[in-house]
Simulated scan of single mutants.
Amino acid sequence: MASTFAQIFERRGGCFRREVCKGRLWLQLDSGRVFFSSNATSKPTSSIVLEGGSCSRGEERNSLVVEGRHGSTSTRIIFPTTAVLEGWETALTLHQSGVIRQINRAEDVWRIADKLGEGAFSSVYRATAQEGEKVVALKILPKRLLPSSSDRLRVFREIETLQFFGGDGVISFEGCAESNDSFFIASELCEGGTALDVAQASEREGPLPEQKISECIRSVLLCLQRVHLRGYIHRDIKAENIAFKVKGSLRDTRLLDLGLSLHTDIQAATLETVGTDGYAAPEVVAGKPYALNADVFSVGALTLLLCWCALRGCWDFPMY
């Protein structure tokens, strides 16, 4: 059900100003943002007046649909949020700068070997670069699994963020490309697998030692601290997104999958319900404003998962 203007803008954490003038709502359009004019006595420049208006979420996850009457005419306007506008600007920059190479197929750039893992939108393979012979982890994201613009913006956001961090607590970026069918993101290869692999191995190899869990969580928190100090929220901390550089060691950790990561300056998007069930903080699930501490809650959920495997020595955690 559509919410009133007042409700929707209040929920967006004060990112927009609101004024009501004689029962009418004044909207001003400025660089794709929507906000109420601070002038409640006269019609502001470049604005429209809608009466009986309502707001709802658009088909695209990050769009805002405004509907109402403009005089005797019913009006429907779709506004992208700040996060979407910045996302498309990022995509344009990545293509124009040549960061995203245009290729016909993955084999033009990499020799693909065995599959390392897969998720809802991608599969990851061990691959070797044709130039330089460097062994990497190659994430392949078929476009058919990314039907909406929001899904594809997540890919561009991940590429930009990987470049920005340059391996500082995050998986190192080794290049990317795009074909007619897929996106390709190459990153450093972590031979130790993920925290999910380690947890599942407890069923075969016995309970996880407490010391190992302590090493893992300490390393994860140090990586997360680096991300937070640079002003980013990861927003999808979970066992599948924690990788270990060396097989058998849980000390040298990398954070994976920054497609949902967000700079804290983009306040409007810190009301998005994102992340993974069981790991997402209560305020995220409830659609309330959240910040860096949402990631810390997710680390707590990861700790619970590993402790469960340590106590029971088997893989039957309710979260999965």
Rank of each mutant, 00 (worst) to 15 (best):
I171N: 03
R230V: 05
R17Q: 14
T90S: 10
W308L: 01
A106W: 04
S3L: 15
T82E: 13
V220A: 02
S182C: 07
S3N: 12
Q7V: 12
S149N: 09
I77D: 07
S31V: 12
A201L: 03
G14A: 04
A269V: 07
C314Q: 11
G68L: 06
R76E: 11
A129H: 09
A268K: 08
C21I: 09
A310Q: 06
G23T: 07
R105V: 01
T264I: 15
A120N: 10
A177T: 02
G193S: 08
M319D: 10
C190F: 00
E215Y: 10
Q200M: 15
R230A: 04
L260D: 07
P142Q: 00
R152E: 03
N180Y: 03
S219P: 05
S214F: 10
Y290S: 03
C55M: 15
H70G: 10
G287D: 06
A2R: 13
Y279S: 01
I266M: 09
V296W: 03
G248H: 02
N293T: 14
K238F: 08
I266C: 08
A286D: 03
E19W: 11
I112Q: 03
E133M: 07
V136Y: 10
T73Y: 12
R251G: 08
R218M: 08
H263S: 11
L50H: 07
G32C: 07
H228R: 07
C223F: 01
L221A: 14
I213Q: 01
R126F: 09
S72W: 13
A127H: 05
K134M: 08
I185D: 00
N293A: 13
A243D: 06
E240W: 02
Y320G: 11
V198W: 15
R11P: 00
A269N: 01
V65K: 07
K288W: 03
E51K: 14
V66M: 14
R204N: 13
E205G: 00
S72P: 07
R152A: 01
A291Y: 10
I217F: 05
E210W: 05
G32E: 10
T81D: 05
T303N: 05
Q102P: 00
S202V: 06
Y279G: 03
G300E: 01
G132V: 03
E19I: 15
Y232W: 12
M1T: 12
C309G: 03
I159F: 10
K143C: 01
C223T: 08
S172T: 12
R251V: 06
R61Y: 14
I237G: 03
V99Y: 08
C55N: 10
S54R: 15
G248T: 04
E283N: 04
E51T: 15
G87Y: 00
A120E: 12
M1G: 15
E131W: 01
I112L: 02
R154D: 06
V136Q: 05
R152P: 00
G132F: 05
Q200Y: 11
C15P: 00
N39K: 14
S172D: 13
P44G: 12
G167R: 04
A2E: 15
